[in-house]
Design a protein around this nucleic acid. Structure first.
Lengths: 145, 145
DNA sequence: ACTTGCCTTGAAGTACACATGAAGGTTTAA
DNA sequence: TTAAACCTTCATGTGTACTTCAAGGCAAGT
């Protein structure tokens, strides 16, 4: 498939796909005899992988380092482990921030229902959510938000 | 406390704190008679809130809109709900991407142990992790990564 | 009096992650 | 054969989120 189809399939712009290839976030893409990129499902999967990691907050540079570790055949396992665990810690912290924010938003949404237009059933359903107690726990940190 | 102490307390640079105030991500900060910012714990909490939301991937503009909804006393609940739910969806997607990436990293780390230096005990402990089965589920999407 | 060290505002600079534009090539279709 | 609709590379532009710089004020210590 050409780059436009790949773009439509992944939601990543053609320019971004070229950029990812240049930055080695995806492997070198085969060209047709005339020089156009010929993108297969393996590349599509890697584009999706990159999209997820980027969306999850990993920088292009870190992502490239991460990927290069897997492309390299050298015996660099100590650095691999160190990098991966470092990255893991960063991502877990982000996930926790995100979860706290999600819980807090849910809590706020519940309050809207409470004050505005919720039926009693909706309210009670919402009160049972995990979000509620966690949001209350974080109120000390977050003040009025 | 002055801005430098606040910076040290929050890990946010003085310049960034000024920027946040300018962009209304935090409220207007009181000044001392001579014009210096006098930062109290309420502001510290809000700086931390901003840091978490930013780290979680919310843009400055969205964050400002979110905060302004709570500062406003007008009856704009429909827009509030819409914005919050929109933001909630974005954040949940990010969280899921992040969790998938975390699971995958854990899976890869387990493989390193497997091939390199793990004791049998470490290996079996790791095999029991939740990460393992989820990573396997996502292998179809992620190819060799 | 002067250096140190904090602060202020406003303007300008920087890094990242692409987006856009220029100049040109190929293929399909009227 | 001429236009449309893709594609290529390389260069430059753009938006975001700060960072850094410039010019100066205030307060304490020597």
């Amino acid at each position: 498939m050409n780059i436009k189809e790949a773009s439509e399939k992944t939601g990543v712009s053609s320019a971004a796909i070229r950029y990812y290839e240049k930055e080695s976030l995806i492997p070198a893409i085969d060209r047709t005899p005339v020089g156009n990129r010929d993108i297969d499902d393996r590349i599509i999967r890697r584009i999706r992988f990159v999209t997820q990691m980027r969306s999850a907050g990993m920088s292009v540079e870190n992502l490239r380092r991460y990927i290069q570790l897997f492309d390299a055949q050298e015996d660099n396992t100590k650095e691999q482990k160190a990098l991966l665990q470092e990255q893991l810690a960063v991502m877990e912290e982000k996930r926790d921030d995100l979860q706290a924010a999600i819980d807090h938003l849910n809590y706020k949404l519940n309050h809207f229902y409470d004050h505005m237009e919720a039926t009693e059933e909706e309210l009670r359903a919402l009160e049972r959510e995990h979000a509620d107690k966690v949001a209350k726990q974080t109120d000390d940190d977050w003040g009025q938000y």
